[in-house]
């Protein structure tokens, strides 16, 4: 479904991601793990069209996304749930969700997706008229996920969905990611919490200083001595 081939992304002269190659098949839940600053978020932003590629190629469903705009990537069916939630604080919950469906013209289907999203996150329905900035951190994360779902993506990119949340909410967030995949959306998730990320995924990639250094199924990665030592506290 998604092929990233030899992608390099630079900030000025610094290459944050170097020659990264990965793939995600339809229906999979793939995670991208690694330490802070390893280039995980940068790679996601490059896929979403927020950062230009210095080299390499990104293909989605066989079509090149080259240096496509964020708008074109979204239209192709990739939604990005950004790091740190990034809800629009002064828009209401409902307006945030409307922004998620900004490019869609099929009003009837949008209305039914909105009902579905509210069924998944009843708290958001209760708070639909409230400014998003007044929500708790957990609620904001739910809103960020719901907003991304409103574009009805084929592939959903999650950037550190558990960041800064209380432990019970972290668990709940991962349950939701799993649920989204169960409902048929392919998932590529960046996550610092390697244990959780490896436990729930089909396959995973490990990024270190901008390079993909390991790759395998969740179980293979969990069993890898280097990963155990560096990322699982073993």
């Amino acid at each position: 479904m998604l092929q990233v081939e030899g992608v390099t992304v630079r900030y000025g002269h610094v290459a944050a991601v170097r020659e990264a190659t990965l793939r995600v098949e339809a229906g999979e839940l793939v995670t991208l793990i690694g330490a802070n600053g390893a280039g995980k978020s940068t790679l996601l932003k490059a896929i979403s069209g927020l950062l230009p590629l210095a080299a390499g190629e990104i293909r989605f469903e066989g079509r090149s996304l080259g240096n496509a705009s964020a708008r074109a990537v979204l239209t192709a069916g990739i939604a990005h749930c950004p790091e740190g939630r990034r809800v629009f604080p002064q828009l209401t919950v409902r307006e945030n969700l409307d922004m998620g469906a900004y490019l869609r013209r099929d009003r009837v289907a949008v209305a039914s997706d909105l009902r579905e999203v509210f069924a998944l996150f009843p708290r958001l329905e209760e708070r639909r008229a409230q400014a998003a900035g007044t929500l708790s951190g957990g609620e904001q994360q739910m809103l960020a996920i719901a907003r991304a779902l409103m574009s009805r993506p084929k592939l959903m990119l999650f950037d550190e969905p558990s960041l800064g949340l209380a432990p019970t909410l972290v668990e709940r967030t991962f349950e939701i990611v799993a649920e989204i995949r169960r409902r048929g959306t392919t998932v590529l998730m960046v996550e610092q919490n390697a244990l959780a990320a490896l436990g729930m995924c089909d396959r995973s990639y490990l990024l270190e200083t901008g390079r993909i250094v390991q790759h395998g199924t969740g179980d293979e990665m969990l069993a890898n001595p280097h990963i155990q030592k560096a990322y699982l506290g073993g």
């Binding site: 964020a70 979204l74 950004p82 922004m99 490019l103 907003r147 574009s151």
Partner: peptide
């Protein structure tokens, strides 16, 4: 208003 509050994320919304 969304573009005012967070242009990058507004761009992600298309």
């Amino acid at each position: 208003r969304a573009s005012f509050q967070d242009p990058d994320v507004a761009a992600l919304m298309g």
